[in-house]
Design a protein around this nucleic acid. Sequence first.
DNA 1: TTTTCATATGAATAATTGTTCATATGTTTA
DNA 2: TAAACATATGAACAATTATTCATATGAAAA
Lengths: 122, 122
Amino acid sequence: MARKYTPAESCDCEVIHEEVVNKVKARMPEEEILYELAEVFKVFGDSTRIRILWALDEAEMCVCDIAYLLNMTQSAISHQLRVLKQAKLVRNRKEGKVVYYSLDDEHVRMIFDQGLAHIKEK
Amino acid sequence: MARKYTPAESCDCEVIHEEVVNKVKARMPEEEILYELAEVFKVFGDSTRIRILWALDEAEMCVCDIAYLLNMTQSAISHQLRVLKQAKLVRNRKEGKVVYYSLDDEHVRMIFDQGLAHIKEK
DNA sequence: TTTTCATATGAATAATTGTTCATATGTTTA
DNA sequence: TAAACATATGAACAATTATTCATATGAAAA
């Protein structure tokens, strides 16, 4: 999102149900909120990050552990951990050379559960 | 995700905590589940779709209504509605020329709520 | 029938992004 | 000190994707 396209000329048809649209418009949250909401879910929208989050929900692990677990390179994992950290979904602590990552959000499990509920139902 | 890269040579460091990794590995769900989970959240990871979903949570609307509400072209909205339909998050009904869309998932609101909870806390 | 209108869709394009590769940083060990 | 090792990071590349534009489809109205 937030791509730089030339401004859209709204719709190219007449409004059909102005009452409904006005009612909904009045109840829409700030643009900023919806943007941030999308940003959060974007972080969840990658299977590598989902796997990392799921793993960290089971146990605290260092970068190397995660890379080995997921059969990926240390670099790829490190890059993704940075994304998760920026999103404040994980935190880390350093012990010598080793950096341990763990979940930093109690909602992760609940967000997973809602997603799973959707998958199972359909 | 699911990009076609040459297979990663797992990690390039030694495993540090084999016990933990084995424990976590045993508890990880099927790859397929985690992949689908990421797919669902990917759909939520775009502010246009978030806005459409939020709007439809308020009221059923036709394509033109949504385009007008969000100040976007009919085409852009139509493309996104197709994505939402494929994800089984919205359904539609036809009345003459007009196609009305509505939410097709009771979890949308709860997924939003969890996302919002995360945003507010951080 | 012809026109009009709402919606859908395919192709093209610009922007984004996940991984790789090479390398930097910083800590421990020899 | 130097070597080894865990992690981080920047650049490059391939793949994905959100929108635009042009046009197709299909239903209602003239």
